[in-house]
Every structure is written in C-alpha cells, then in structure tokens.
Design a protein around this nucleic acid. Structure first.
Length: 648
RNA sequence: GCUGCCGUAGCUCAGCGGUAGAGCACUCCCUUGGUAAGGGAGAGGUCGGGAGUUCGAUUCUCCCCGGCAGCACCA
C-alpha cells in the first residue's frame, strides 16, 4: 500500500496509507479533534473530511472555532437541510439553487402553492429534526450523463438545466444526507448534527427569477440567517432592530421631515423641518462648488422630445420618461414633451450658446437639476429611490488634456464634502464599456484610456468594474461606507466623448479649427433625496449642530420664566441659530422627552434661577446631565459649533 | 414590472358577516412642576377606491390604487 505524508500547519509531518480521509486523520490526531472537525484543507483547498487523500499534501483541520470556514459550512449545510425539510414537508416542490450569502443563505424553490410566513416555523422545526438525526453527509463523484439521467428520473428539471449549463465535461459532486440528495460543489460538514440547531432563523419568503432573469419563471426564495452560536444570532437580530430604528422613513415621520402619499408616488412632500435640512445641505454644496469654479445654471424641466431623440435618451429610456402631450394650436399638431430625466442635454444647450474658445475651457456648469424618472413600482423605496429628485449635477466641458486635472479636482472636492458630512471612507470603482453603448469602439478606447490615466494619477486605490459604464462613456463611481458599515454608491464622474458630438458642441482650438469638447458628467451626492435618506440613517437622526434642522429648543420650567425664554430665543436667532421657544403648560420632563425624541440637539431649560442669573441650563441630546452657562457664553459656544465646516 | 404580504382615528395597532376599539397625539379644565410621559374631561373614522355575493360587508370574492420584503431594473 502506498503511503502519503501530510504536513500539518505547525510543520509536523504524519504518514498514512493512501486513501485515508480527513476525518480519519483528525480522529488519529486526537479523539476530541475527530469529533470537533467539520472540514479540512488539502493543499489549501477547502475540502470535505470524507474525501480520500492519495498524494503528499499540506493538511489542516477546521473546527467550529475557525470563523470564516465554519460559518460558510454551517450556512451552506443549513441551506441544504432547509431544502430537504421543504421537500419532506411538500414532496411536489422542486429544488433549484441555494447559496450562502452575507449572514446566512437562501434557497429557491419551484412550487405552485405559495409559501407563507407561517410555513417558516414548520420548516425550521423540520430542519431541527434533520439536524438532530446527526446523519452523515456523504459525497460521490458522478459523470454528467449519469447525473442528468438521475435528475430526469427524479423530476428535477432545474438541476438538469444547471448541469447542462456547466461548461466543459468536468465530473460533478453529488451529496447525500439520509435519503436526500443534492448537486453541489461542496464542501460540506461531516454530519447534519454539526449545524448549530439553536442559532439559525428563517427570515422571509420572496419571489426571485430563475437564474436572475426576468424572462424566466419566478421561483420562491426562502431566506435564512445562521451563526455559530445563539449569542451571535441574538446579536444579529438586535442589529436588525437597531437598523430599523434608524430607517429614514421612520425617522422622517418622527422628526416631521417629509411624507409621501398615494397621489404622487415616489415624489416627496417636504415638511418645514425636512426642507430646512435640504436647504442647509444645498447651501453648503453651492458654496463648495462656487469655491471650485463651477457656474450655477438652471434649465427647463419640460423639454420637447426632439432634444431627447437627438441625445439618444428617447431611444434607450423612453419607457422610463414622464411625457406630456399638448395641442399646439399654431402648429396644428400635437407636441410631445418629456419631463427631463437628466440635465446633460440641457447643459449642452447652454454651452452651445455663443461660440466657445479653448480659452473658455474647462467650463464647469452646475445645476441643482430637478429630474423625473418613471421608476418601476417595485423599485421605489422611501427617499432612496424616487421618481422626482434633484441632482447636484454638473458638466465640465474640457479638452482631452484637461480630463486628468479635472478628475483630480473633482475627487478633491468629493473628499472634502464627504468628510464634512461625516463620512470618512470611500472607494473608487472604475467602470468600462457596457455591451449596449453609444459611440464607436475607437472613441471608447480613447475615453477609457484618458479616464484610466486620470484615475491612476489620483494615487488612490480603485477597483475595476468591467462592463458597468454608462452608455455614453466609462465612469468612476464613489462608494462610501456609513456608520453601520453599509456601502452606498454616491458620487460619479463619467467621461463622455459621445454626447457633445451628437448635440453639436464645439470650441475653437489654438489651431483655429473646430473641435468637440469632452464632457465630464459628475455628481457628488447624487440626488438630494437619496443622500438625505442616507444622511438620516448614518446619523440615526442625531445630526451635528450645523446640519440639524431644529438646533435649539428653549424650554420654560415655570411660566414665570416665559419672558426670559423669549429673550434667549431672540438672541439665538439674531446670531442665525435655529431656535424655538417651548412655553407650553407642561412639565420640564415632558418637554425634555418630547424634544429628545424629536432629536433636537440642544435643549436650554430655563427656570427662576436662570431668570435671575441671566443663564441657561444646557442639555445635549443623548447626555444625562445639564450645564448652567451665562447667556453670552452659551450663544458664543453654540454659534461656533453651528458654523458649517466650510465657513470655519 | 414580477412573487408574497399588508392598507381600520394624526401616529402605532386590536377587532371582524349584524354597522368600530385601545394607547399616544389633539382641544378644554385643573396643575407652575428643575431635565425622557402630572391629573381629569372632550372631540375625532364613508375601516385605501370600485364592483360583486348576501336580508345585511370594515369583515367573503374579484378588479384597481398605494405601501412593505425580495427579485428584475437603475441614463
């Protein structure tokens, strides 16, 4: 019998007969390890314990304690166990795929009857039964023909389709526990009992298209979350509750910022508090852009379809545009207009007024452009995805040689803005030509090259995202990370060599000849609506003083202090602070609670002591105690704190 | 757009084939209280819209609108 030598992570070498399995090695090392082992690595490749080892290898054992591997296996096996549970409960169900995702897994099923949330409990129960059986998980390697025949015999057409879609003629790995079988790349645990039965939970049922294609049948997807132990599961569920508390739709209601209603789906009704916040942000952006040489313009919201035809949007995005038809009596005809879905064609119209010289470039035209897009009903979500929104948009008309310096300038602006608004981290994605696109390959070669040069000169890391460019040009996207670790794609910079030409933008170069400028589409926040949604969630509504729509409430403790309350409010307002008086017939406890729930950052409580001493008792949101300050001292401190970062 | 669920007072929600209820908010009265809910009284609803079944529909069925969770889409 041939011998294999296995090198363990600590450098020790053990010799076994060829064909020994990982499980046997683990048991040989120690009895407890034999029990604890859940999988192994053979020459670094994640593998089942049951696979025979026939060559000298590096060898490592994984147990419950090995974080990424253990989680991967638990979730993966839980997905399979869930599929088995579902098939045991409803034998007519066909199984498809069930991958591991962040925090858990899902599995897609085909069944005529819909699953209901109540069914999840029954499935969970069945899963625990399967786990408690501690059945060994077996694997075999089959050739394609045999596997296809097997699934045809078992009436599992989705599996047949999956196998037929796997390229090449590689053999397939088949897994079993009990009588239940699935096709899988593996690896898996040694037995079902290794899945922690008390630290998973089925979360929801939802539709999902077979293979992610909306032309295909919609299947039913069940989502689960799973962890190594109960405490981790509890922590995760707690985190979900916390995330729900900072949901901008909820906070928007609690802080009285905005509302949405049936008559205008996807269009925001901003309330005074919300609009204050909106304007604070817009004023800030306006100052930052002015500082950077942008010229602010404003262009029409309703524009004849001819312009959209010329720009190419009509052909590609007609379905998503709001249109209006009016009878034009003079032309004796109907005119079709579209609500602008974006600002660029209009900006080119402004550019085109008057002959431009190379001396005019770069020309940076900015607009807080109000746009409308007919988003599909299912995609709308609070402020995050709406049908009416305002972009902090700008188009930089420049020469090819200016692309790099303008990109640098823009990224510097982004950094400043994101920092000021409380985001310290962002990533850059570089997206290249998509399959459906405007312009020739020659133009794309050029656009990609210039933009790549520009991003390289930034001296910042970036990730390539092939095929994700805009239809008129390659782009850089800027993704930032919020306070609870979620990523949001915000800023964008798109190099466009196509649209200026389509819309006849030109300039006279140094050589006296006409040239077509390059157009850089760029946005920092994206849309104000979406950004405010993100901002609300990032701060959980507890804005820094300069952003808070309601900054200070001055609350009377006794009604004899009302006069002093009004005077304090007047002094704060005179310094530009957003202050309100609360002289209602309520106790201070009540007022403090209410304004704390309303996320007002500063409460100045005023009783007879403060009246006599000309002081205020300052309480900060989220803090327990209060601090008595002289009025002048308090005003000065608040003014300093409330000054926007760009004005300090 | 697709699948599933949901739509009752300003808000959060209970109810359910016989014509509607709670807490908070609101209005008034009492209370002047020192940092997260003082007490009492009152007012408030074509039960998302339309059609059908029924003696009778907020409740059952169908259609439409809107929302939620996913999927698809996102210039």
């Amino acid at each position: 019998m041939a011998e294999v030598s296995l090198t363990l992570p600590d450098g020790a070498v053990r010799k076994y007969e060829a064909g020994i399995t990982g499980a046997q090695v683990a048991a040989d090392i120690s009895k407890s390890l034999g029990k604890a082992a859940i999988a192994c690595a053979i020459n670094g490749a994640f593998s089942d314990l049951s696979i025979p080892i026939n060559a000298d290898s590096d060898f490592a054992i994984y147990t419950n304690k090995d974080e990424p591997q253990a989680l991967e296996l638990f979730r993966h096996d839980a997905a399979h166990i869930m599929a088995r549970a579902v098939q045991e409960l409803w034998p007519d169900v066909q199984v498809t795929i069930g991958p591991v995702i962040k925090n858990g897994w899902y599995y897609d099923f085909d069944r005529d009857e819909p699953f209901h949330e109540d069914d999840l409990k029954a499935i969970e129960k069945k899963m625990r039964e399967i786990i408690n059986k501690r059945e060994p998980i077996r694997t075999e390697i089959w050739d394609r023909a045999r596997a296809i025949q097997f699934y045809k015999d078992n009436n599992e057409p989705y599996k047949v389709e999956l196998i037929e879609g796997i390229p090449g003629d590689e053999d397939l790995r088949m897994y079993w526990h009990g009588d239940w079988q699935d096709l899988c790349r593996g690896p898996h645990l040694a037995h079902t009992g290794q899945v922690p039965g008390d630290s998973f939970k089925l979360m929801s049922v939802a539709g999902a298209y077979w293979r992610g294609d909306s032309n295909n049948k919609m299947l039913q997807r069940i989502y689960g979350v799973g962890f190594r132990n109960k405490a981790d599961l509890k922590a995760h569920l707690f985190m979900l509750e916390e995330a729900e508390k900072r949901d901008h739709r909820r906070l928007g209601k609690e802080m009285n910022l905005f509302h949405l209603q049936e008559e205008a789906p996807g269009m925001v009704f901003w309330h005074p508090n919300g609009w204050e916040l909106y304007r604070i942000l817009q004023d800030y952006m306006r100052r930052r852009q002015r500082e950077d040489g942008y010229l602010e313009i404003n262009t029409p919201m309703v524009v004849d379809r001819k312009l959209w035809e010329a720009s190419g949007h009509w052909e590609k995005y007609r379905e998503n545009m709001f249109t209006t038809e009016i009878d034009d009596q003079h032309a004796n005809d109907k005119r079709t207009n579209a609500l602008k879905p974006m600002n660029c064609p209009c900006h080119v119209q402004v550019y085109n007024q008057g002959l431009k010289s190379y001396r005019d470039l770069p020309l940076r035209l900015a607009e807080f452009g109000s746009c409308h897009r007919y988003e599909s009903s299912g995609s709308m979500h609070g402020l995050m995805r709406v049908r009416g929104f305002t972009q902090d948009d700008a188009h930089i008309f420049c020469t090819e040689d200016q692309i790099a310096s303008e990109t640098k300038k823009f990224v510097d602006l982004l950094k400043r803005v994101y920092m000021d608004l409380g985001f310290s981290e962002f990533k850059i994605m570089f997206s290249t030509r998509p399959e459906v696109r405007g312009g020739t390959d020659e133009v794309w070669d050029k656009a990609e090259k210039y933009l790549e040069d520009a991003v390289k000169k930034l001296d910042m890391p970036y990730t390539l995202d092939p095929g994700e460019g805009a239809f008129y040009g390659p782009k850089l996207d800027f993704k930032l990370t919020d306070a609870i670790g979620r990523e949001w794609q915000l800023g964008t910079l798109q190099a466009d060599f196509v649209l200026p030409e389509r819309l006849d933008a030109e300039y006279i170069g140094e050589d006296g000849q006409k040239h077509t400028p390059v157009m850089l589409h760029r946005a920092t926040l994206g849309s104000f609506e979406r950004f405010l949604g993100i901002l609300i969630e990032n701060y959980a509504g507890k804005f820094p003083l300069w952003l808070a729509p309601r900054q200070i409430v001055v609350a009377a403790i006794v009604s004899d202090a009302d006069e002093w309350v009004h005077e304090v409010v007047a002094r704060l307002k005179a310094k530009g602070l957003r202050a309100e008086a609360d002289v209602r017939n309520e106790k201070i406890n009540y007022k403090v609670r209410e304004h704390s729930l309303g996320k007002v950052p500063v409460i100045l409580a005023v009783g007879m002591r403060e009246v006599e001493d000309h002081t205020v008792s300052m309480r900060r949101l989220g803090e327990k105690g209060s601090k008595v300050l002289g009025i002048d001292e308090a005003v000065e401190a608040l003014v300093a704190e409330a000054t926007p970062p760009d004005m300090k």
